[in-house]
Design a protein around this nucleic acid. Structure first.
Lengths: 223, 223
DNA sequence: ACCTGAACACCGTTCAAGT
DNA sequence: ACCTGAACACCGTTCAAGT
């Protein structure tokens, strides 16, 4: 029952910036499920209600974390041909999600941020217009690319987590090996190859190649 | 303070099946955030702990709901050339997610189900092998397609929700019109076109076309 | 303005008990 | 087996209050 007089933050040591950073760290460590305002307050050595000085509520805090975690992805401008620009922007977004796995949950609850992500949004859309798409198709390609990157990378993060947890890993293995070969011959035969697609740059690049090749094709037929 | 003797389920009226169905309905109505075991119990006219007769805990229940909601997508077999088969499977999966929006959250927390989705998994992978992909690339294409469909459709569901809620809608509009045109010229110029990409079959088909065209291209170069 | 503790209406789940 | 109420350790947030 240690009651060692809690080292309270003396005065004005806190700031919105600091709260967001600590929240991001905690979110990445324990997951969005286990994250709570009270746990964050304890981390910061502060009473729960203190955090409400900086944010109207939990939702607003999570939005700020999402913008903050996304912000760093937009620092430098992409260069080269449109294919290379699109590739660069997609890789950066994936990199940012892998670095902050909590982004998978935050992006799915509330999609794309406002100002923080505007830089890379602008770059991506510009690259697609430069590629030769008309206004409608450039916008369609833009939304397709974002959905693809977030979707594929979210799947990657989940599968990697599943692989790390030995208990869940064993369960998945049992389901796969338990599938009747006469009903699911292809799944059973390709089980090893499927396991190979769990994460990794090669898997991401494969999908990105498909999408870009598809866009090149589309530009020839009807831009 | 109405205490009108709650119409308790008499005996053995409940079943795992019934609990799952009620859970799915409640989840789609109030969202995964607001869903709770206690609320579900109230819906069923039963004490919260009763549900633990059928499921070890909330997680197991959500897994069952996910499998149940996904199951109906796999009823009939796809036919025709591989392109048409892939298209059909993707459309069905999207259709199922649109019908049960809670699937976006359930699929992102725990990816692809086991047995319930094995039917369409088998069909999809078989179509890709038939297309001519080697084992490694068929598996890579498989994971790419699933990530794409779930990602793009999740984005669709979120954007549609955002559009329905007038308050959030106004907020998004303000962010877009508030963007400085000299810093984000492309975003500002294409704001109308971007709004057009929020949901709809045309948007989904556009992305699906890109992916399939990309696969056709890839098959020529290195299957 | 910044920070606090007490209180309220919720959660998921354990436990001992009833049929 | 099926179903229950009481209790425990949590939540996010309101409120009145302290500096």
């Amino acid at each position: 029952m240690e009651t060692t007089a809690r080292t309270r933050v003396p005065r004005n040591t806190l700031s919105a910036e600091l709260v967001v950073t600590a929240a991001l760290t905690l979110l990445d460590r324990v997951g969005v499920e286990a994250f709570s305002v009270r746990a964050l307050a304890k981390d910061l050595g502060v009473a729960p209600m203190t955090l409400y000085t900086y944010f109207r509520g939990k939702d607003e805090l999570l939005d700020a974390v999402r913008d903050h975690a996304l912000g760093a992805a937009t620092l430098t401008t992409a260069y080269g041909g449109w294919q290379h620009q699109v590739r660069t922007i997609c890789r950066r977004l994936r990199g940012q999600i892998l670095e902050h796995p909590c982004l998978t949950a935050l992006l799915q609850q509330r999609p794309l941020a406002g100002h923080e992500s505007a830089e890379s949004s602008e770059s991506l859309l510009r690259a697609l217009v430069e590629a030769g798409f008309n206004a409608e198709n450039a916008a369609r390609a833009y939304t397709t690319v974002l959905g693809f990157v977030v979707g594929v990378t979210t799947l990657e993060v989940r599968l990697l987590e599943e692989n790390r947890d030995p208990e869940r890993r064993e369960k998945v293995r049992q389901i796969m090996t338990g599938l009747p070969a006469e009903r699911y011959p292809t799944l059973v035969e390709h089980a090893a190859a499927l396991r190979q697609t769990v994460g990794g740059d090669a898997q991401f690049e494969f999908g990105l190649d498909l999408l870009i090749a598809g866009m090149e094709q589309r530009l020839i037929l009807s831009p």
